[in-house]
């Protein structure tokens, strides 16, 4: 596609009047003053509709009996490009492999979503969530309990067969 250039026709200085230009400008602002096109979102009251593929802080899915779905396979700390996941696996009393320690440093995290993509049991998810204010920095290291407590909706994965999907 060729680049088109729009040539602006500007009046000669002798033909311009500052006051008239200023008055037409004021007419424009007055139109907006009395009939504003409101784009501001009243945030805490009005919540944003997050994109279905928005990637925010993590949450861990749990089984019906309250156990984490994670089987401590170690793929997420392996794939994590920011190296923000710490995982120590172990065995619970029913002989299931589970994470004894599962920590995500949300400050190091770059929210690429690869942990969710790689998870074989759909346990760890990035969430459609962004309200992360805390009073101390160490609160941003989410441990397993914290991750399991999260209730925000999870992110939809990108479907390679439908690359333009939302």
């Amino acid at each position: 596609m060729a680049i088109s250039v729009k040539v602006m026709e500007r009046p000669e200085p002798e033909e311009t009047s500052y006051l008239r230009a200023a008055l037409s400008g004021m007419a424009l602002t007055f139109k907006h003053l009395i009939n504003p096109v409101k784009v501001t979102q009243q945030y805490p009251e009005e919540q944003t509709d997050l994109h279905p593929r928005w990637r925010g802080t993590h949450r861990m899915e749990v089984h019906a009996d309250g156990r984490p779905k994670c089987v401590a396979c170690g793929l997420c700390p392996t794939v994590c490009p920011a190296n923000c996941i710490r995982l120590v696996g172990g065995e619970d009393d029913q002989g299931n492999r589970y994470p004894i320690v599962y920590e995500i440093d949300e400050f190091r995290c770059i929210f690429c979503g690869m942990c969710q993509e790689v998870c074989p049991v759909e346990a760890i998810h990035v969430g459609r969530h962004f309200e992360n204010a805390e009073y101390t920095r160490d609160r941003f290291v989410y441990d397993l309990d914290r991750l399991m407590e999260q209730e925000h909706p999870t992110t939809l994965l990108w479907d390679p067969s439908d690359p333009r999907s939302e």
């Binding site: 401590a72 170690g74 392996t78 065995e91 492999r97």
Partner: peptide, 9 residues
């Protein structure tokens, strides 16, 4: 060694 570490680590 059960569940202690992944081989690639």
């Amino acid at each position: 060694f059960l569940h202690k570490a992944r081989a690639w680590d």
